[in-house]
Amino acid sequence: MDNNLIVSTSPHIRDPINTRRIMCQVIAALAPVTIYALVIHGLPALWVLLASIAGALLGEFVMEKGRRMPVTLDDCSALLTGLLLALTLPPLLPWWIAGVGGLMATILGKQIFGGIGHNLFNPALVGRAVVFVSWPAYFAAGYAKSAAIGIANTATHKSIEAAVDIVNGASPLAAMKTIYDGAAKAPQGLFGSSYYRPLLFSNPWGCLGEVSAILLVLGGVYLVVTRVIDWRIPVVYLGTVVCLTAVSGRDPLFYTLAGGLLIGAIFMATDYTTSPLARRGKIVYGVGLGVVTWLLRGWSNNPEGVMFAILFMNALVPLIDRYILPRRYGQVKKAEEVAQA
């Protein structure tokens, strides 16, 4: 039997964790908000979701076949990309545009860089950026009209919709922007706080993933507790936005709950490949994200800012990884010795 002994170098055991399991955990964390989005937005959202996922899977498959690489659909990363993309799309988007977004996400966002682990930008956000730039009208207005069912159509919802009608049923961020900017045509009697309850529990005026802040936070807590993601990026990112918004005299809670900030901070900015490797780098990255988001939301024409903030910071990650290294064991001592010598 001696000849049958396996000889290899240490370590001889491995953590059972693998890529597929990680991806599935993130998908599980997104499941509640996805299902709830389908409940609130109904069939149109289902088509967006399915087309986006199908596009992402197809893009991955075609590119890997074309490059004669092993097909890696079974690691569930393309599935997650499609799902994440769908959650950042408006429910009334025609399904084929969502499909194009999905294709672009895995082809342009991931495979042309060389596949998993090699891409510079978050694939889902690359897909979204393509859709956003090509068909901007779908993002601008008109969410409110999809609010068909009771939980997202209460007296609170109705009074808000009545107020924002003056700006064509703009999204919460867009409506509040007109107020903060002091625009002539701004809704009357509307405050950031008017939005708290809908944003937390039932928000029909936004992309699929914006239906409930509380479900996103719960998903994030699950991922942090199971150590799939590190708490630093979302916490530092959100903290930075809260501080800066408060300092600039706007409602920080509203700015945290509204738009794509939570889904971006918890699920997009924490994407492994496109965020810094080391914990220190993650803190720097989170601060950068917060600052850029705050600048874009406050001073650009677009009320949103999360997507471009993340894409912008993605581009800086190689730099962060190069210069913000973990503190090495014995490093300080060495410096002292050098100083003494």
């Binding site: 990680i22 682990g117 590190d230 490949t273 290294l325 973990p326 090495r328």
Partner: peptide, 14 residues
């Protein structure tokens, strides 16, 4: 996949 687990696990900070 740049998950950072090895970086977090290294006791030497490498």
């Amino acid at each position: 996949i740049r998950c950072g687990r090895c970086v977090d696990a290294c006791p030497m900070g490498l």
